[in-house]
Design a protein around this nucleic acid. Structure first.
Lengths: 135, 135
DNA sequence: CGTGTTCATGAGAATCATTCTCGCATAAGC
DNA sequence: GCTTATGCGAGAATGATTCTCATGAACACG
């Protein structure tokens, strides 16, 4: 389906498998999860390769990373435009949200304190309606 | 200086040392850093104890945690009111900033998507004026 | 369509932050 | 002072991530 040709990046079975898997999945998944899933479906890929593929995808802007409170990295296939996430802390379901006001606010506050080259990172966590219902 | 008596929490030399050190320091420091600093100044404290102390301080709301891009946790003595950080990515200097608009925005967006129990995490990174000048 | 160069892969070892274990010390309450 | 739960320390254990290095495969070129 998606065949993103990034210059200087070779197209291998393993890399496609990782990206294809991420395409199917909804929320953020850890590298270990993805590795286990690939292995389950018989499409065996080395763990180190999963890490390498994910890093490449992140570098190319095709995937977003999120660090959980335990420090474990979670990955998700994302749209390339700037956005933030609304993540269900129970089922991991994710909604992408844009936030023009926050962008402006961050830039302004940073400028007021003499900071240049500003980046920001924002995630919103909550419990989605299904999980609230499920109790 | 600060002698925060938290009920159910014993006051020991080690715990005071960790908190005192954090009081002196400006930016975010990793547990390993803090441990090394304590050891340098002769005030030896076990590494495991530093971790335990920091966790307790975080639980008591006296210290904030931040996860770097490498997943390593960094700690900083902070004011107990809700706030976010403006962090210099070069020297680590930190400014606490409040952000009523973002609070409201996060809550509203979450509600629109049916999410309850909302929390958010926001950090702004940049290069502070001194570091920009120093090139 | 071969073929060589270069980059990717995989298995396992290595690294490194963090947590656990467990016997000993000590703060707090009486 | 005495008791007792709690904290401490050293080192082992855990677990995610990265490195190593020999093998394999993609791509450019003829």
């Amino acid at each position: 389906m998606t065949a993103p040709e990034v210059p200087g990046r070779r197209q291998t079975r393993q890399r496609s498998a990782v990206l294809a898997l991420l395409d199917e999945l909804d929320g953020f998944r850890t590298a270990q999860d993805l590795h286990a899933l690939l292995r389950e479906r018989g499409d065996a890929v080395g763990l180190a390769t999963v890490y390498r593929a994910l890093q490449a995808l992140v570098d190319d802007g095709l995937v977003d990373v999120l660090r959980g409170s335990d420090g474990e990295a979670a990955y998700r296939r994302c749209s390339p435009v700037h956005h933030h996430h609304l993540v269900c802390r129970s089922c991991g379901r994710t909604v992408e949200v844009a936030d023009p006001p926050v962008e402006r606010w961050a830039t302004r506050v940073a400028a007021e304190h003499g900071f240049a080259d500003v980046q920001h990172q924002l995630e919103v966590f909550g419990t989605c309606s299904s999980c609230t219902a499920a109790g």
